[in-house]
Simulated scan of single mutants.
Amino acid sequence: MTETHATPATGAPVFPPGRYGRRREPGRRRPLLVALLAVALVAVLSLIAVRLYRQYGDPNYDAQVITYTGITDSQVLVDFRVTVPEGGSAVCLLRARDRAGAEVGREEVTVAARPDQRQVTTQHRLATSARPFVGEVVRCRPPA
């Protein structure tokens, strides 16, 4: 008969043979696969960030509505200021909404600055299909 100690001398537990099934070997790590997945994730997130910046974050084409007046059943006059690169131009999307928030008019307007200007102030008459409540500039972008 052999002696069995309550605590084994090594750090690993000792199980009776055949009693608990086969023990798994420690899995081998795949650092190359993990690195490739990390690079792919960074690339996808970078593409998303660039697209969102182009859509919403270009400070060279910033628009502010000064006022909207001349509201009738078929139009609104929108006064707005656009910041563009010096001497550049921009295409701005204007829209009118009714009291319920439904869009009743939309139009793209091109504005151009003089060679020494960065800001352009302009007024545009936006035709509508119903009486508008508000006139606004949705966004401005560089001309195509």
Rank of each mutant, 00 (worst) to 15 (best):
D73Q: 10
R106V: 05
R19T: 14
A112T: 15
T69P: 05
A38T: 13
A112V: 15
T110C: 05
V137L: 07
G101M: 14
P143K: 15
A40W: 13
Y20S: 10
A6S: 10
A102Y: 15
G88H: 05
G70C: 03
P16Y: 11
L33C: 02
Q117W: 12
R131P: 14
R54S: 04
A40R: 14
R114S: 09
R24C: 04
R125P: 03
T121D: 13
R81F: 07
E136Y: 01
P31C: 05
A49I: 00
Y20D: 11
T128Y: 03
P142I: 03
Q75T: 09
S89C: 11
V91A: 03
Q55S: 12
D62R: 12
T121V: 12
A100M: 09
V39Y: 00
P26Q: 08
R22W: 11
G11L: 13
Y61K: 02
Q117G: 11
G18R: 06
G57T: 03
E136L: 06
L94C: 08
R51N: 10
V34P: 02
L45I: 13
A43I: 00
P115W: 02
V91L: 07
L52W: 13
A35G: 10
V82G: 02
A100G: 11
V138R: 06
V120Y: 09
E25K: 08
G18A: 05
R19G: 06
Q119A: 06
G57L: 00
L32M: 10
G21I: 00
G70F: 05
P16L: 12
L77P: 04
A100W: 09
V14C: 11
A130L: 01
